[in-house]
Write a protein that binds this DNA or RNA. Sequence first.
DNA 1: CAGTGAGCGAGCTTCCGCTTGACTT
Length: 735
Amino acid sequence: MSTVATSKPLKKKPSGQTKKAPQKRSAKAQKYLVIVESPAKAKTIEKYLGGQYTVRASMGHIIDLPKSRMAIDVENNFEPTFITVRGRAKILNELLSTAKKSDAVLLASDNDREGEAIAWHLSRALSAKNAALPISRVSFNEITPKAIKEAVAAPTQIDKAKVDAQIARRVLDRLVGYSISPILWKKVKGGLSAGRVQSVALRLICEREKEIEAFTPEEYWELFADFKMEKAKAGAKAAVFTAQLALYNGEKAHLTNEAAVKEIIARIENAEFTVRDIRETQKALRPRPPFTTSQLQQTAANRLGFTSRKTMQIAQHLYEGVNVGASRIGLITYMRTDSVRISEQALGEVRDWLSKNYPDDLPAAAVHYSVGKTAQDAHEAIRPTYIRYTPDTIKDSLSRDEYRLYSIIWERFVASQMNPAKTLTLSADITCPGAEGEPVFRVSGTRYLEKGWTKVLKTLASKEESGKIFPPITQGVMLKAQKFEPEQHFTQGPPRYTDASIVKTLEENGIGRPSTYAPTISVLLDRYYVTRANKQLVPTVLGRLISDLLVEKFGDIVNADFTAGMETRLDEVEGKGRVWTDMIREFWTPFKKNVDDVTQSMESYKGRVDEPTDEVCEKCGKPMLKKLGRYGYFLACSGFPECRNAKSLPLAKCPQCGGDIVARKTKKRGKEFYGCSNYPACDFLTHFKPLPSQNCPKCGWFLVEKYDKRNGAHKLCVNPACDYLHDAEGAEGTV
DNA sequence: CAGTGAGCGAGCTTCCGCTTGACTT
């Protein structure tokens, strides 16, 4: 494998001119090298442009700041040192040698800030080798033959102001990250990190945890009543339905204890009820816009239980191409985008498809969704590339997860171009005229008048949308309460963040980009700042320490407003002639002083994240500490370094030999499992995570936590031969 | 789907944002 995009032998050589030397300009067609970012894109564009054009991919940034040092000369007007990124020299050299064989180069990296910088770096590298080579910039926001041909016909120059804005962004992030992280190494622990994006994400998660801890649940009750119509119409079945107490004493019912509920029941137990008024409301439900990256990750997390990382991996696969029958087809457009824009060509195709399949639900004109104000809009929304590949027609070519992800992308896009749905909601008040406090019960039902866009939903169809049925009652009908059903509840604290909600919050605050949402979550997990439990992001002791510390010392940076301020200044650099180094200096001067002050004055937190345990060292009798090492948490003797005893955290007792059950990772995929510490003498093993000190009342083996979509998190006996909580009962044993 | 298995600590790390493969057991 030596070339970037020509490794497939299938590709046909365009006939004629490719081998000829570029000497004779006049008669011969010019040969162009077009450079884009993604290899999949390169393939498509080469197909659209034909033989004069060779299209290659840069695979993102190939020139950047070195990883190993700051590389910004703060004394010398913040001069950055750019190098060829480690491992990317091969790509650059191939681009250089292809350029040599071309008459001109068209830089077609993405039409956004980062893309402009990629073009600029490439242009400098290419000119350094061949100053005479004509280089220009082309940009397009959608990969359609028309858009590509138009772009290539109208080349422009690199926008240096835009490049400056990117350099400012890059330098700022480097200064922040590489100044604060070393403070953490010095004062807390090696290998830690801080940054403009990750530290805000961590702060959000930690502050939410504090809210949860500060929350005191309050008791409240709901009262339901089963009503029966006293006189059903002749022949009709007497309908029984349930309504909920809505008003009491003329106000929204607010019952805080059982006594209050019983009091009401006593007053109305044998009373006559009547249907007072029935209200009708019609609502139009608009379809949602097609997916952006953030929306895709949120929906895939909520509907399919995917992590952001998993969503992106699968989406990448769908984008790069899947074997459908004999050919390889890129099934979706590019998956990293902040825009809901759709190419006219795709709108035409989907409207054509709808006119054949759902002619009644096709609006008179295509629907255009408004693109977010902060969106850089370099790519279209995420949509299927070919509407005719409905999820069902290609199901056999996809894995289960690919099929499900493709389904939600296809459904969301097609629905977005259909008519609104219309619903009718009926709501009735049921009163008890004589009773003290005049309790009012309410029942409602919703049904579709027109199903509109909901017709194409299968994977995305929601239960609520199927509607609740309104009972066959009319105004003035007399009712009898058959049964009262009070329900006790407690108010819930705010929920922990999940992949879906943290990505949503980051995006709403303009923090991070489509390409970084998933990696940001991963970095918090990698640093052991956060763990994932039942899809929730839970901060660790270490994470909370770091967050508190950063908020205290660098509160003006670990803050959503910091990024917002940065963006306005970058806009000034890009559009109002502001000099990027001035912007950076304004930030750096006070920041650097603070960094020095904190480095000077801050106390050390070393060892403070080691948690005491009840375990006793079997070698020297001292207590053991829970420490964080390179491979995660472990137990170490508090007598270190005199006593060097260390072992894995015991999670349970081995039911086979009485040894410790410890977490292990598979060599191949790093997947966690739980085995006996006496391996290989004892080969006990399970995939389910042991619950802390909980044993099965039936067989004495330990209990584990299992997560599945239907039941959520629930406990289970680890013994496969034991039936404790293995059936339906288990679903109720919420962990 | 099947089958899964080490050593760790005071070790030199880290940022954000573009983009895809991957030294070998």
